[in-house]
Design a protein around this nucleic acid. Structure first.
Length: 509
DNA sequence: TGAAATGTTGGGGCG
DNA sequence: ACGCCCCAACATTTC
């Protein structure tokens, strides 16, 4: 240690001292502003990934770990990645000590625990005279750049996204060149073995089917984007709602880990539109507006750091949630008796991913039909989704629950039968993930409890046997939800007063 | 990114 | 041929 430390301190001031790039949720080498900044410094690079499982960071979900393993494995084919585990501040100190590094660069994160951690690290390193620098790599529009006239955060998606679009492509900036082949690397830095981190499940290997659907890593992300823009984006505005079809881009996990940047998606989509590969502007606009929802989620999490756990609307703190957790288990296992909900939850369990339409249906069922707290759904999704993302997950659960940023003036309750009939009319999705219903005719597959017993028998379905009875009757549950939610609604007050709780919340931040 | 209730319209059956 | 009724399909309103 003493020899290393001595050489370290002498090298630290010199122009040849290496620089650490700390990879986090930017696991790519293209369009990477941080790596371009490393090139500008002209110093040898130590590409570092830290597995930080300390208590002040939210632990990764199981499915996220699976993805991370493969993503790191992919990234380490492009750069000689150094792997370390431990509290980030300590690991960075160790690597600086060992190598005499002149400083650390990273891409900014927007999760509250990451912001807190990064600020501590930034302050400590710069107090020691080390180089510290961070860039945006994760969003088109960083939260502080988007402001309304009143100086308070936007609380409704549409005006938010309009304000973003008004900032324009000059704000989004140009794609950054790939620079990894121009960099020199420090190649004798101690690294842990990825396999030793045991990020992959073993007994049982519940991720067995994940790899059939997804190819983690930067290359996988770009081939997915290209194949999406080569076809399925045409008709996207409507077809995106059909869970039994392959009509969404499925880029969410790649986006979460930064294997592809929203900027790359933005420009590729615009280019495809100009080239005539995308026939209708509305399909391109709608696809990009989905990136807008992601931006909005990051924006909300930035302005409201308690978003993952506390309802945005403070009235909901006193919501009389159910405590029947046996129902939670049935929901998690896809045993609710509602075919579209069960298909959704089993898709999640089997593939680590769930279609956007059925995320809304399944989430609405947990919160509105079962009256179970949305935080429990948020936690389950966090653990089981390969695209688990603190901002998207929290914002979406709050939207579904009606305690967040949904602009609708009514209580939005999804009817699982109607949603099934509307978006999975021939039962393709249900047949895929709820095989015990595969032989049910279209007419009954979304509500088998109404089917004549002869139909059930012919399809080999026994309600309460190989497929469960409904946990609740939706019409009854719907009325119960309306009655319960009614107590959360503001009494008939002037509109100006109704907005007060939100203003007070943002001012107090 | 909802659902149910209510309103409107237009075609076909039928006296 | 005409008016009336029924009702499906679609549109609008309401919560």
């Amino acid at each position: 240690m003493s020899v290393l430390a001595a050489s370290a301190s002498s090298a630290q001031g010199s122009a040849s001292a290496p620089i650490i790039f700390w990879f986090r949720q930017d696991l790519r080498v293209n369009d990477h502003a941080g790596l371009v900044a490393v090139r500008a410094l002209g110093r040898p690079l130590i590409p570092l990934y830290i597995l930080d499982e300390s208590k002040d960071m939210r632990p990764l979900g199981g499915a996220s770990k699976w993805w991370l393993h493969h993503s790191l494995s992919s990234l380490s084919r492009d750069v000689p990645l150094v792997l370390r585990c431990g509290p980030a501040a300590e690991v960075l100190n160790d690597v600086i000590q060992e190598t005499g590094a002149a400083g650390v660069l990273w891409s900014r994160c927007y999760e509250p625990d990451a912001i807190r951690r990064d600020k501590v690290i930034r302050d400590a390193l710069s107090a020691r005279g080390l180089i510290v620098d961070s860039r945006n790599s994760a969003v088109l529009f960083e939260p502080p750049a988007v402001n309304n006239k009143a100086g308070t955060p936007y609380m409704v998606y549409t005006p938010f996204w309009k304000a973003c679009l008004a900032l324009g492509e000059s704000h989004i900036g140009a794609i950054q060149p790939k620079v990894t082949h121009e960099l020199k690397y420090v190649n004798n830095v101690r690294s842990e073995k990825l396999d030793d981190w045991k990020l992959l499940p073993t007994k049982p290997n519940w991720a067995a089917a994940f790899g059939q659907r997804f190819a983690p890593g930067e290359k996988g992300a770009h081939s997915l984007l290209q194949s999406f823009l080569d076809g399925p984006i045409n008709g996207y505005k409507e077809a995106r709602n059909v869970p039994g079809s392959r009509t969404t881009s499925r880029l969410s996990p790649h986006l979460h880990w930064g294997e592809i940047s929203p900027r790359q998606i933005w420009y590729a989509t615009r280019a495809a539109l100009r080239a005539g590969k995308i026939k209708q502007q509305k399909d391109a606009d709608h696809y990009l507006s989905e990136l807008g929802w992601r931006e909005f989620s990051y924006y909300l999490l930035f302005h409201f750091p308690t978003l993952p756990t506390e309802p945005l609307n403070p009235k909901f703190a006193a919501f009389p949630w159910s405590t029947d957790y046996s129902m939670l288990k049935r929901w998690q296992k896809g045993q609710t008796g509602y075919p579209i909900v069960d298909a959704a939850m089993r898709e999640l369990w089997q593939t680590g991913w769930m279609h956007n339409r059925t995320r809304m249906v399944a989430a609405s069922f947990l919160v509105k039909d079962l009256l179970l707290p949305w935080q429990m759904g948020e936690e389950w999704f966090w653990d089981t989704l390969i695209d688990a993302d603190a901002a998207n997950n929290a914002a979406s659960w709050q939207w579904v629950s009606g305690c967040g940023h949904d602009a609708a003036p009514y209580i939005r309750i999804f009817n699982p039968v109607l949603q099934g009939e509307k978006f999975d009319p021939d039962g393709t999705y249900i047949r895929q993930f709820v095989p015990e219903l595969a032989a049910m005719p279209n007419q009954w597959i979304h509500h088998p409890w109404d089917a004549p017993s002869s139909v059930l028998r012919a399809a080999g379905v026994e309600l309460g046997g190989n497929y469960p009875h409904r946990l609740v009757k939706h019409d009854v549950a719907q009325k119960r939800a309306v009655a319960t939610y009614e107590s959360m609604r503001p009494q008939s007050q002037p509109a100006a007063q109704r907005k007060l709780p939100f203003k007070a919340l943002s001012a107090a931040k």
